[in-house]
Design a protein around this nucleic acid. Structure first.
Lengths: 338, 338
DNA sequence: CTGTTAGCGCCTTCAG
DNA sequence: CTGAAGGCGCTAACAG
């Protein structure tokens, strides 16, 4: 920086002034031009560490995730957060946590030590989290999860409305006997989606208690097994709603084996709109999209604009239905089996 | 830090000495203990920015990815790199790039400005990369890709051996007529795997030219379509080898529709060992595992131990075969159709 | 064994 | 409109 000043024939402070336009200083156009030229010829770039030391802003946002490798949505969250943070001139320090509380605390300490300007906590399963109080002064936001006492503002998918939307995809096509193959029964999302499903059923003038509901585990195998079981029972429903797209793939497999065509013989809907899966199976799967990308963008925006202070405890983002080809009107008679 | 020194009755340098054990200084045990106590009661933690300014080491490694959201392997790479970097006391600054060269340069500049101690370039499709020379002094490593003139050491999956392993899964079971449904023809990985496939065929005393080879696109839909097409042709092979696991899922779907059982009627192998997919379909898919996690760990280790200087241009990590249930000996007669 | 001193590279009052 | 000076929090010679 001194070098730049020397080359431009000004002091280093002047260089600083032109580099940080905002500094309440006014610089003559000629000087500015000379400085900028010197910057260019020297290929000078300010050292962010030094700047951070002085300004106490590091232009760095911490993103702590759990199970980053386990879930296919981590990428969408990182991408969304990165994009808005980057547009704001900051970068993302990504750390992964196991579920173990000690690691969480260590990770947060490390982030606070840098220090980062803010912290985004991304939880992959919308679980409850307990958070160390080490993040005293650091603005923090929870993405896709919530804390016990709403200690930290959170952004979540509106899973209840999502469950409702998924059911309505089927109801609107005329289905009245729907099997809901849910995900892991313990998960927050599963319970919320189920409530949405039941609400949609009741809204349609039907009795939620009449529908068949089976608990799966969000994996392909449970969609497969549960569907096979359904096929052995009397009164096969005209449609299957799955806990997620992977379970729907399992259902596709079981249905194909049984010689049942989708959607002619039976309709299927998924959940998640998982990349490279939902849109690519045959027929393309109607589903409901999880807003990981949008949540991450939203959270990052709050954080870079410094607006986490006035945020409500929870903000819900919609899970829009996506209509593809796996839903049709139910057959008049009973579906013809294999 | 001055506060700590005051409380412990020593100077701030002494505090620094006890905090950085290594500093070539010796400290009496009594002093050390007093300092440590003061640190504890004050809950003091050194500011890494200040330390970084002084030491020119920021304990930060840049990880630049492309298409982080697009591929399911990004998580494994981030996780692997994070784990070893974290164990070494560093953190990961993750930035995403589009394919556009300008963005790449901006991203690298930003990383160099911090400065980061090293940069890991993770490419998601083993493509060639062109790299800006802005990363003058920063040790850099390429993960899952390579540069035009081997300008930067790279770690890659041994795709040729992987293709060979996948084919051998089938050959060892006795298959002699294998259809290979490849991924995108343009990709480096596709060509390498194909070479491995052909080598395995020749090694088995067969003629590679006799096998049917069709180009797909790595997505479920192409596995489905290509398999359906195969089923309309005379001389159905006894086994299908797929470009990746998603294509194998497409093959499963098409085979199930046709009433063909896996592996009784026809065997299938995938590639990637994609999480939550390969192991979960029915029957569980035999495949070959891509070593993203291992490559990331390996690369991170080189970088934190400062050993990138003496590295060969390319290091190949194995793609181990994983045997599950989708391969069996071929039927004696022609497979029985639907 | 411990304290003093001088910066790391930048920003920002305060004078001129 | 520009320059001088001080300091952000820490480390590393160098004295003592």
């Amino acid at each position: 920086m001194a070098d730049v000043g020397r080359l431009a024939g000004v002091s280093s402070s002047t260089v600083s002034f032109v580099l940080n336009e905002n500094s309440g200083q006014t610089i003559s156009n000629r000087t500015r031009k000379r400085v900028l030229e010197a910057v260019a010829t020297l290929d000078y770039r300010p050292n962010r560490t030094a700047r951070g030391l002085r300004t106490r802003r590091t232009a760095t946002i911490g993103l702590v995730t759990d199970e980053i490798a386990a879930e296919p949505f981590a990428g969408a969250i990182i991408l969304g957060a990165h994009e808005v943070v980057w547009a704001h001139g900051s970068l993302l320090l990504v750390v992964n946590t196991t579920r173990d509380g000690r690691t969480v605390r260590e990770v947060i300490d490390e982030l606070v030590d840098r220090p980062v300007d803010a912290i985004l906590f991304a939880v992959m399963g919308a679980r409850r989290m307990v958070l160390p109080d080490a993040l005293k002064g650091v603005p923090s936001l929870l993405v896709n999860g919530y804390t016990a006492g709403n200690l930290m503002p959170a952004v979540l998918p509106d899973e209840v409305a999502g469950g409702r939307s998924a059911a309505q995809l089927l109801l609107a096509a005329g289905h009245r006997r729907i099997a809901y193959l849910t995900g892991r029964a313990e998960s927050w999302a599963t319970r919320a989606r189920l409530r949405g499903f039941q609400a949609a059923i009741e809204d349609a003038g039907l009795n939620a208690g009449d529908q068949v509901i089976r608990a799966g585990n969000y994996r392909v195998d449970s969609g497969y097994e549960l569907t096979r079981q359904l096929l052995t029972e009397p009164g096969l429903p005209t449609a299957i709603m799955c806990g997620n797209d992977r379970m729907a793939v399992g259902a596709y497999l079981a249905l194909a084996e049984a010689g049942l065509r989708i959607p002619e013989d039976i309709s299927v809907v998924g959940y998640d709109d998982q990349a490279d899966l939902a849109a690519r199976v045959n027929p393309p799967l109607s589903t409901v999209r999880l807003p990981h990308y949008q949540m991450a963008r939203w959270a990052a925006r709050q954080v870079v604009t410094g607006s986490v202070a006035g945020l409500p405890a929870r903000t819900y983002l919609p899970c829009p239905p996506v209509t593809r080809k796996s839903v049709a009107a139910p057959r008049k008679g009973a579906p013809r089996k294999g």
